[in-house]
Design a binder for these strands. Structure first.
Lengths: 208, 208
DNA sequence: CCGAGAATAGAACGGTCGTACTATTTTGTC
DNA sequence: GACAAAATAGTACGACCGTTCTATTCTCGG
């Protein structure tokens, strides 16, 4: 044994990860704050105090949960898109994977950050900072990808990349929100169609 | 006196409205569920039980708060847009008033329904139903306005009205969400620009 | 301006919350 | 396989929650 790094971690670390996984899943549905330690303990089959011992406070648990969700988001959205070639294909891949991530319910309550950002907007502190940081970096990365597509001559460089990123993100967010509300999977195709058509309208024919 | 209908309502009704107004304002910031009756009583300068007596339960208070917010939304967004002529001007007016409503902070936490819908998505009951109903009716009304603009020959009838409504709503929602997160008022102009350009791209020149 | 009824306040309830402390069990190493 | 250390469980505490009950104050039509 000992081939993978997983098996080398102590038991406590494995338990901690299992807790955070459950916490992120539940928080995407009911929110980060209303998820009580007692309920989370019950969901993981542990005692309240046994679970609590892994984190110094509820706030620490929340921060760790956000970090865990962020790395899952990177694995499911950012990393796969990075395999698409720079430029327009990567812009499309980012948006498509974002919609997929919502549709496949990587988190059972849809996008973790959509679910939790609203609840911490007016609650200053490290939890809010962590959520903000993650969303900001997603938007920056999307904008950067658009810039690369413009630099490659694939997208109209006269429309600011920030505008394009704003609109593409808006489509994905709207699909996530409306699906959570109405449970109609058609919104995901709606978002993909809107994304495709917007990119198409900005596309430059290669000067061959 | 007695000119306006306001002065004819009993004291209890006036107090009730003041409570609901405060409740909607606070709920737009911290959410509907975490707003406790004790905190609301403190915010309105009443005793817990004195306030509670106006509502049979916390759930009834929440439903009444949603209804209050809905009628404020109608006053601030739907009604003013209704004064614009049917067709493209009304579509624009709806979107513009929607962004304005968010920007002017009619509710201090931005759009009341954006703030509270996520928290009740996975909590079945009359409160969720009420929120759903309101958002659904907003989307329907927007879609209907687009259909009228198409019927009037102002917008391309080949693009389904539902698609257009989805995209226009997405811009307004994204602006609201991003402003609450990052406090950069530029997102409102971003949303208005996106809306204008999308409508422009669908516009038909009058066959004069 | 009085008196009935509406409106508000006060006190107390059982329940759950986050957290601290102590005891017990489990793990991994020599 | 013993034993220190790590992990988990048990219990208790004060705070706040929604709600109930009773007492007090206010309102406003006759």
């Amino acid at each position: 044994m000992g081939y993978s790094s997983e098996t080398t971690v102590r038991k406590g670390e494995r338990t901690r990860r299992a807790i955070l996984s459950k916490a992120a899943a539940l928080a995407s549905q009911e929110g980060l704050e209303p998820l009580s330690i007692g309920r989370l303990a019950e969901a993981t089959g542990m005692s309240k105090s046994g679970l609590f011992a892994h984190f110094g406070s509820k706030e620490d648990l929340q921060i760790a949960t956000v970090d865990h969700a962020a790395s899952l988001f990177v694995d499911e959205v950012i990393a796969p898109a990075r395999e698409a070639p720079r430029g327009l294909p990567r812009v499309w891949a980012l948006c498509d994977h974002m919609v997929d991530y919502s549709e496949r319910q990587v988190f059972p309550g849809g996008c973790f950050f959509a679910a939790t950002s609203a609840e911490f907007n007016h609650r200053p502190g490290p939890v809010r900072d962590e959520i903000q940081k993650m969303i900001r970096s997603w938007l920056s990365y999307l904008e950067h990808a658009v810039e690369q597509a413009q630099a490659a001559g694939e997208l109209d460089p006269n429309v600011p990349a920030r505008q394009v990123a704003f609109q593409l993100d808006a489509f994905a967010q709207a699909a996530n929100a409306q699906y959570q509300l109405f449970r109609d999977p058609a919104v995901f195709d709606e978002a993909r169609r809107a994304t495709r058509e917007r990119l198409e309208s900005l596309r430059l024919r290669p000067a061959a």
